[in-house]
Simulated assay, not measured.
Amino acid sequence: MGPDAGGPDPGDPDGITVRDPVSAPDADGRPRRVTRRFPLFTRDTARPEGGGRAASGDAPAPARQWPVLTVVLVVGLGLLLTALGVFRWGTLLIGAALLAGAALRWVVPDVGMLAVRSRFTDIATYGVFGLSIALLSLMAQPDPVLEIPFLKDTLHFTVS
């Protein structure tokens, strides 16, 4: 099968270039746009916006990924505190780490592997999860720091 039939392009060494049948044809009647999509499975994905290195390529790997390493290390410290019995401070630290990840995603142009989806989606996800974890840690029993009356009434209504 040749490239006109939608099969592999003989000029491509991998043999996986597929002509996109929906693009406008050129003067010879062949589609203009060429895509690297394979019909059965994905071989590659696009890098998310801001997913470039956070430091130059000459820097060692940890320095290039400092934003995600910062968030992961603070979450790890929060998990350690939680495991050692300091539940409220540990979970509060986890929530703060996710909020810091949202702030880093917003402020720093290239955050490396901290960029998972679009900038808006990452900020919204890190922010909602971070704020939820921080608020829940402040409301944890015994002796909650933060009391929200309607949540207490909702809990009593659903449990009883």
Rank of each mutant, 00 (worst) to 15 (best):
53 R>N: 12
54 A>V: 00
54 A>P: 00
55 A>R: 09
55 A>H: 03
55 A>G: 06
58 D>W: 15
58 D>R: 15
58 D>T: 10
58 D>E: 11
58 D>S: 11
60 P>Y: 04
60 P>I: 05
63 A>H: 02
63 A>R: 08
64 R>Y: 08
65 Q>H: 11
66 W>M: 07
67 P>T: 07
67 P>Q: 07
68 V>S: 12
69 L>R: 07
71 V>G: 03
71 V>I: 12
71 V>M: 08
72 V>G: 12
72 V>F: 09
72 V>D: 07
72 V>N: 10
74 V>N: 05
75 V>L: 10
75 V>F: 05
76 G>C: 09
77 L>G: 09
77 L>T: 08
78 G>M: 05
78 G>C: 07
80 L>A: 15
80 L>M: 12
81 L>I: 05
82 T>A: 14
82 T>P: 01
83 A>V: 04
83 A>I: 01
84 L>V: 05
85 G>L: 06
85 G>F: 06
85 G>W: 04
86 V>R: 14
86 V>L: 14
86 V>T: 13
87 F>P: 12
88 R>V: 13
88 R>H: 13
88 R>G: 13
89 W>Y: 11
89 W>Q: 11
89 W>G: 13
90 G>K: 03
91 T>W: 15
91 T>R: 10
92 L>Q: 13
92 L>D: 09
94 I>W: 02
94 I>M: 14
95 G>P: 05
96 A>C: 10
96 A>S: 15
97 A>W: 00
98 L>T: 09
98 L>C: 11
98 L>F: 14
99 L>F: 06
99 L>K: 03
99 L>A: 09
100 A>S: 12
101 G>D: 10
102 A>V: 03
102 A>R: 00
104 L>P: 03
105 R>I: 08
105 R>H: 08
105 R>P: 05
107 V>L: 15
107 V>G: 08
107 V>I: 15
107 V>N: 08
108 V>E: 13
108 V>Y: 11
108 V>N: 06
109 P>Q: 12
110 D>P: 03
111 V>S: 03
112 G>D: 02
112 G>I: 01
113 M>P: 02
113 M>A: 14
113 M>L: 15
114 L>G: 07
114 L>A: 08
114 L>R: 00
115 A>K: 02
116 V>M: 11
116 V>Q: 13
117 R>M: 09
117 R>W: 14
117 R>H: 08
118 S>A: 10
119 R>A: 03
119 R>C: 02
119 R>I: 03
120 F>N: 11
122 D>L: 00
124 A>S: 09
124 A>R: 11
124 A>N: 02
124 A>V: 15
125 T>S: 12
126 Y>L: 12
127 G>W: 01
128 V>M: 09
129 F>I: 10
129 F>G: 01
131 L>V: 05
131 L>K: 01
131 L>W: 02
133 I>T: 04
137 S>A: 15
138 L>Q: 10
139 M>C: 02
139 M>Y: 01
140 A>W: 03
140 A>K: 01
142 P>T: 04
142 P>G: 01
143 D>I: 02
143 D>T: 12
144 P>R: 09
148 I>G: 09
149 P>A: 11
150 F>V: 13
150 F>G: 00
150 F>A: 05
151 L>D: 02
151 L>I: 11
152 K>A: 13
155 L>H: 14
156 H>C: 08
